[in-house]
Amino acid sequence: MEFNTILFDLDGTLTDPKIGITKSIQYALAKFDIEVKDLDELEPFIGPPLNQSFKEFYSFDEVQTKEAVSFYREYFSEKGLYENQLYDGIVDLLEELTKQNKQLYVATSKPTFFAEKILEHFEMKKYFHYIGGSNLDGTRQDKAEVIQHVIEQENLDIDDIVMIGDRKHDLIGAEKNGVASIGVGYGYGSKQELTDCKPTYYVETVKELLEVLAS
């Protein structure tokens, strides 16, 4: 199956944001006198909407969640944004897909403002026709809504789209929009989490991803 329109998740798919995100969460939790020394414990925050994760993992109410996200952004906007790294082979992947005239987009639950800054930092913004994310006011965080927004904004044909991501939210969002999906095992979702969602394809490496996407 050949796809000409490719939507990429950002965190855990294009870049490994672990240090920046987990340190930002650690900083926010400390404001509530919650001390987390091991950053590995905060890995589940990578991928899902922040609001959802603070409620799910720490039982925060709406007011606490809003405050926690604000504290998170204090650290993230200054430091966490850049405590990030590209996965090996990602630039080569984007270069090759661009040469093949594939249309590339980003669909992320991260606010568009931050997503654009990260892609600019890594000099990757040039590869994407459009970067779709959530709003800073907390709306449009659900991945299905983000994908729908990109499709509508760019007037895309759902029969020609594949959504690529490392968490179940990416695959569920793709299914809700009637588009194909690829689960990538090199990010933060387990193989079980991804395969349970029955993606169109499942790959373990960036190399395998290129083999699936390249004509």
Rank of each mutant, 00 (worst) to 15 (best):
P49C: 10
L42T: 03
T98Q: 12
S77Y: 09
V203C: 13
A28M: 02
M1E: 13
G138V: 11
K55W: 01
S181A: 10
T22C: 12
F76H: 05
Y127M: 03
I118Y: 01
T112M: 06
A107P: 06
A30L: 09
E175T: 11
K31R: 14
E211P: 03
L94Q: 10
F8N: 07
K99M: 11
Y75F: 13
G132K: 01
I147K: 01
D92R: 14
S53G: 11
L14Y: 03
V212I: 15
F32G: 04
F8S: 06
I131F: 07
Y82R: 10
E83V: 02
S77H: 10
D38E: 14
V150I: 09
L81H: 00
S215R: 10
D38Y: 05
K23W: 04
Y188N: 12
L194T: 08
L7M: 11
L94H: 08
D157I: 02
A115S: 13
L50Y: 10
N135C: 14
Q153S: 15
L104R: 05
F76M: 01
I172H: 04
K143Y: 05
V69G: 09
T13P: 04
S190W: 13
I151T: 02
L209C: 10
Y202N: 03
G12Q: 07
E62W: 00
C197P: 09
I182A: 04
V184F: 10
S53L: 09
L42R: 06
L94W: 07
E152V: 07
A174I: 00
K18T: 08
M1N: 14
A180C: 05
T98C: 08
N4Q: 12
R167T: 05
E193M: 07
V69Q: 14
Q85N: 15
D9G: 04
Y72D: 09
V206F: 07
M1Y: 12
F57P: 00
S53N: 11
E41H: 13
E56D: 13
K37I: 13
S181N: 06
E35P: 00
Y105D: 01
Y72E: 09
F32L: 04
E123L: 11
L81T: 00
E145R: 12
G185F: 12
G20A: 06
Q100M: 08
V36Y: 07
Y127I: 03
E152I: 04
I164D: 01
K143V: 03
A144Q: 13
A180K: 09
S134I: 02
P111T: 04
V91F: 12
Q141P: 06
V69W: 08
K168C: 01
G132R: 02
A68E: 07
E145P: 08
Y87W: 08
K143A: 06
D170V: 00
